[in-house]
Structure formats: C-alpha cells, structure tokens
Design a protein around this nucleic acid. Structure first.
Length: 238
DNA sequence: AACCAGGACGTGA
DNA sequence: TCACGTCATGGT
C-alpha cells in the first residue's frame, strides 16, 4: 500500500532527525552560524509561530529568496536586511530597488528577486492581515506553486503540502519512477493525510517537508549515499 | 574548477 | 501543454 509506505517514511524520518521546527526565522536567532537552524529560540515541536505579521512577512521573503538557492545564502541576505532594519514590510515598501538589490545580493538572482520582493511587499500590505487565497498568490509575478505553498503552509498555517526538487528526487528513487508533476504529487500526499485532524495535519505537513529537505541534503543527495540511508529497506532505487 | 543550491518566467514548437 | 534557456551568488 503506497499510502502506508509514505506514512512510514514520515515516521522514520521524524524519529531519525527529530522535529525540525520550521520555518527558520532569523529575528529570534542568536547568531548566524554556518547554516545551522537554531530553532528560532523556540523548542522544536513548538508550532506557536509565526505570531505576528512581521514574522509572516519574513517567512514569505525567505520563501522568495530561497528559490533555487541554498538557505545559507538566503541567511546572509536576510541578515543584511535585518541588521539594517529593512526586514519590515512598511520599510521595504519604500526602499529603492537598487538598494534592495545590493542587500540581497548573496542569495543570487538579485535582479529578479528584488523585483519579486517589491511586488510581493505591496501585495502583503494590501492584504491587511487577511489570509490570501492560493490563486491570488499564484497570480503574483515571481510566485509559483512551491513558493505559494511554502507561504501558505509556513506563514499562513494552511494545510498545503509543499513539493520541491528534493521531494521529487527522493520519491522518484523510492518508487523507482520519475515523479515530477507538482499537482499530482501534492494531491497524493495530501490524500495520504486527509483524515488527520487539525492541527495535526498542519504539523505533519510542516515537519514532513522539512524532514525531506534534511534527508536530501545529507543522504539522498544528487549523488546519493544509500549505504547509510535510513530508508533503504523501503526504497526501490536501483 | 565544474557542479550545485528548499524555482519561476519567457519563449518557441 | 512542454521542453529548454535564462537568471547569479558562493559552497564544496
């Protein structure tokens, strides 16, 4: 049964790595250190954040900055903004695009990303604390399915399963067939947990995605290290 | 020193 | 629809 297998994988990864406590906020972190998520000053397993619009906004900006970019680079960009007091929607809204570009430079694609952030900031302010629909996020230039779902799940706490390159890679290997259709994968994952009640479903979606990222970065890399993979008994790869 | 990183958009077929 | 080029920095 495919659904049971997916549930099993979730529990194995959770046992292996523990709760990840995403999304990594920088404004509560002690310091920037080599890409380690310092759990934001919250205990892992504490899902009480984001607690305000400022934290929601930081998550959304991070979601844009991390498009096809490693998180360590995103941290540098966020840190630049934060230290100058620019990581604030009212201030970013007035900030010149040139200056924004230079602050987010370490995260790459700074030309496009500065434009994306400016457009999104305008949208976020006009939300005025309303929770956006997925369709409206997708209509915004620079926000595709993964970015929209990351915002919805981690900033707005709605049960959308995030599919990223890691998710596609891991499950393509586990089921030994190419899985790269976003909508198809998302609905099948959401279907696996359709009977979970809130807030459990939210917690599962939150942790599962971040656990997939963790396992992909360390073990199920582009060149996989299957020898000490905790999932090898369930994996049909090779 | 090539390869890769928590994608999205524009284009042509 | 779909495959492919483009965007850009800094790690390993």
């Amino acid at each position: 049964m495919k659904n049971k297998k997916i549930r099993d994988i979730y529990h194995i990864l959770l046992q292996q790595y523990g709760p990840q406590g995403w999304w990594p906020l920088i404004d509560l972190r002690d310091e920037i250190t080599n890409g380690i998520h310092l759990k934001n000053g919250y205990h892992p397993g504490d899902y009480s954040f984001p607690q305000n619009g400022s934290q929601q906004f930081e998550i959304c900006v991070g979601a844009i900055l991390t498009q096809n970019t490693s998180w360590t680079q995103v941290e540098k960009a966020l840190d630049n903004l934060k230290r100058k007091g620019l990581l604030d929607f009212n201030i970013l809204d007035k900030l010149g695009r040139e200056e924004l570009m230079s602050e987010i430079k370490p995260s790459g694609y700074f030309n496009q990303k500065a434009r994306k952030i400016k457009i999104f900031t305008d949208f976020f302010i006009k939300l005025n604390e309303r929770i956006p629909k997925r369709e409206e996020l997708l209509r915004i230039w620079g926000i595709g399915k993964e970015t929209a779902d990351s915002m919805l799940l981690y900033a707005f706490k709605l049960p959308f399963f995030v599919i990223d390159a890691y998710t596609k890679r891991i499950f393509s290997r586990i089921f030994n067939r190419v899985m790269d259709n976003y909508d198809e994968m998302q609905s099948s994952f959401q279907n696996v947990f359709k009977n979970e009640l809130e807030p459990n479903k939210l917690i599962i979606f939150n942790e599962f995605h971040s656990l997939i990222v963790e396992h992909s970065k360390n073990v199920c890399k582009k060149s996989p290290n299957c020898y000490n993979c905790i999932l090898k008994d369930l994996c049909d790869y090779d």
